[in-house]
C-alpha cells in the first residue's frame, strides 16, 4: 500500500488542525453548533447506564490498547525480515515472503481471525500432546489467536512498506558503506535498516492507526475489548445509538491521542534530507 493510500484510510499527523485556524467566524459557528449537538445528545438521550459500565469500559480500552501495541510491535519485528527478503533474499525466502504478503493482504482479516480461532483452534485439542503441554492454558484463551491474527496482518501490510523502504535507500549510501569496509551485517545494522525505517516512519503512523481500527474485530472471538463492552451495553440496555456513539467517540479520542503522540515523536526525529 502506498503512502498516500494509508493516509486516505487513516487519520495521520498531517491532518491535525492548526491552532490559529480555529478563530475564523464560520468555525466558531460550527464549534458552537457542535457543542449544542453534544449537549442535546447528553440531555435527550439515555446515559443513565454509563456509570455502571465505566470500570468495564476502562479495562476494555486497556485491552484494546494492549492488543494494538503488542501486535504493532510484534508485527513490525516480522515486517523487517519480510521486507528485506523480498528485496534481497534468495528465492527460497523471497517467494514465501511474497506469497505470505499477497495471501494475507488479499483476504479479509475477519476471515483470518475466524480461521485461526474456530478452524485451527478446534484442531488442537484433538492432539493429546498439545492438550497436555504447557501451552494449553494459553491456547484455551481467545487473546493469543487475536494477537496472532493481528500481528500477521500488520506484518504483511508493513512488510510491503518495508520492502519499498529497503528498495528505496539510495544505492550510493550502501556503496559508500561498503567502501568504508563495512561488512554486510554492519552495513545492514548501521546504514540500511535505520535508513529504511526512517523512510517507512510516516507510513508506520498511518498503519498503526489502521491497526487500531482493526482491533475491534477480536471482539468476535470473545476477547473483551472496548468494542465487546459496548456490545454488552447494547445487549443489556437494548439501546443502539447511545453506546455506539460513545464507542465512536472513544475511538476518535484514541486515534487523536495516538496521532498527537506521533506528531511529538516526528518532531523529535531529525528529517534532514529524508
Amino acid at each position: 500500500m502506498t503512502d498516500e493510500t494509508t493516509h486516505a484510510l487513516a487519520y495521520t499527523p498531517e491532518d491535525l488542525p492548526k491552532k490559529e485556524s480555529f478563530l475564523k467566524p464560520h468555525r466558531i459557528l460550527l464549534i458552537l453548533l457542535f457543542a449544542a449537538l453534544v449537549v442535546a445528545i447528553a440531555v435527550f438521550m439515555r446515559w443513565d447506564w454509563l456509570p455502571r459500565y465505566l470500570p468495564r469500559l476502562g479495562s476494555g480500552i486497556l485491552v484494546s490498547l494492549a492488543m494494538l501495541f503488542s501486535t504493532a510491535f510484534l508485527g513490525f519485528l516480522l515486517a523487517v525480515p519480510l521486507g528485506l527478503f523480498q528485496v534481497t533474499g534468495p528465492s527460497f525466502l523471497k517467494v514465501p515472503a511474497r506469497i505470505f504478503c499477497t495471501v494475507i493482504r488479499g483476504t479479509p482479516l475477519l476471515l483470518q481471525l475466524w480461521l485461526l480461532y474456530y478452524g485451527l483452534g478446534s484442531l488442537f485439542p484433538q492432539f493429546p500432546a498439545i492438550r497436555q503441554s504447557f501451552l494449553w492454558p494459553y491456547l484455551r484463551e481467545a487473546w493469543p489467536y487475536g494477537v496472532a491474527a493481528l500481528t500477521v496482518s500488520f506484518a504483511a501490510y508493513e512488510g510491503e512498506v518495508m520492502r519499498g523502504a529497503f528498495a528505496g535507500v539510495p544505492a550510493g549510501e550502501l556503496e559508500a558503506a561498503r567502501a568504508y569496509g563495512m561488512g554486510r551485517w554492519t552495513m545492514f545494522r548501521r546504514i540500511w535498516l535505520p535508513r529504511a525505517i526512517h523512510r517507512a516512519l510516516p507510513t508506520l503512523n498511518g498503519e498503526t492507526v489502521l491497526q487500531l481500527k482493526s482491533t475491534p474485530l477480536v471482539a468476535t472471538i470473545t476477547v473483551v475489548d472496548v468494542y465487546a463492552v459496548i456490545s454488552k451495553v447494547r445487549q443489556e440496555t437494548y439501546l443502539t445509538y447511545e453506546p455506539l456513539l460513545l464507542l465512536a467517540a472513544i475511538y476518535m479520542c484514541l486515534t487523536g491521542t495516538l496521532v498527537v503522540a506521533f506528531r511529538y515523536f516526528e518532531n523529535r526525529i531529525p528529517t534532514r534530507g529524508a
Binding site: 474456530y118 483452534g121 478446534s122 488442537f124 485439542p125 484455551r140 481467545a142 470473545t222
Partner: peptide, 11 residues
Amino acid sequence: DEANQDLAAGR
C-alpha cells in the same frame, strides 16, 4: 454454535 464449538475444542 460457537459456544458448542468451543466446548468441543475444550475452551
